[in-house]
Amino acid sequence: MNCGQFEEPVTLLVGMGFPRKIDSVMEAYALLQDWPSAGRNGAHAIALNACKAGIVGEIDPETVRATLVSFARRHDILVPDMVTPLATVAGGALRTS
């Protein structure tokens, strides 16, 4: 695994609602740097600071990922993992009929 890579990407809705996969600390940092100033708040500052700490190796990429997920949830831009809901709907097991 590359330094700064997330174990699992985070998919966010950006721009006009287009999905974008964020795979690394640097991609998260770039996204947050480009975030409109009107939409910046405490969650943004925490996620951005986590990215900065992750870039210099002060915290691990999964901690950065967790702060990005929290930021995305607060802004309602997190795309849920589609595998988990399917298993939940199917009662935890795949149905064949």
Rank of each mutant, 00 (worst) to 15 (best):
M1Y: 06
M1H: 09
C3P: 00
G4S: 07
G4R: 06
Q5Y: 07
Q5K: 13
Q5A: 15
Q5W: 06
F6V: 04
E7G: 04
E7Q: 13
P9L: 00
P9V: 01
V10I: 14
T11I: 14
L12Y: 05
L12D: 01
L13Y: 11
L13E: 13
G15V: 09
G15A: 08
M16K: 10
M16P: 02
M16A: 15
G17S: 05
F18I: 08
R20M: 12
R20G: 00
R20A: 10
K21N: 14
K21Q: 14
D23I: 00
D23G: 04
D23F: 12
S24K: 09
S24F: 04
V25Y: 06
V25G: 03
V25W: 04
M26K: 09
E27M: 13
E27Y: 06
E27P: 09
E27R: 07
E27W: 06
A28Q: 07
Y29A: 08
A30N: 14
A30Q: 15
A30V: 10
L31C: 05
L31D: 05
L31M: 04
L32F: 02
L32W: 06
D34G: 11
D34T: 12
W35V: 02
W35S: 03
P36Q: 02
S37N: 01
S37T: 11
A43T: 10
H44I: 01
H44C: 04
A45G: 00
A45M: 09
I46D: 14
L48I: 02
L48S: 09
L48R: 04
L48D: 02
L48P: 03
N49R: 12
N49Q: 14
A53L: 08
G54H: 05
G54V: 03
I55N: 00
I55R: 08
D60V: 06
P61C: 04
P61T: 02
E62Y: 03
E62W: 00
V64Q: 05
V64R: 05
V64S: 05
V64D: 03
V64G: 09
V64K: 03
R65G: 01
R65H: 01
R65E: 04
R65Y: 01
R65K: 14
R65S: 03
A66F: 00
A66L: 12
A66P: 02
T67H: 15
T67F: 11
T67R: 09
L68K: 03
L68Q: 08
L68T: 08
S70K: 11
F71G: 04
F71W: 11
A72D: 12
R73C: 06
H75M: 05
D76Y: 10
I77V: 15
L78E: 12
V79C: 15
P80T: 02
P80V: 00
M82Q: 15
M82F: 11
V83W: 07
V83L: 15
V83C: 10
T84K: 13
P85Q: 01
P85C: 01
P85L: 02
L86F: 11
L86I: 15
T88Q: 14
T88Y: 08
A90C: 14
A90Q: 14
A90F: 05
G92S: 07
G92R: 06
A93F: 09
L94T: 12
L94S: 12
L94C: 10
L94G: 13
T96F: 13
S97R: 12
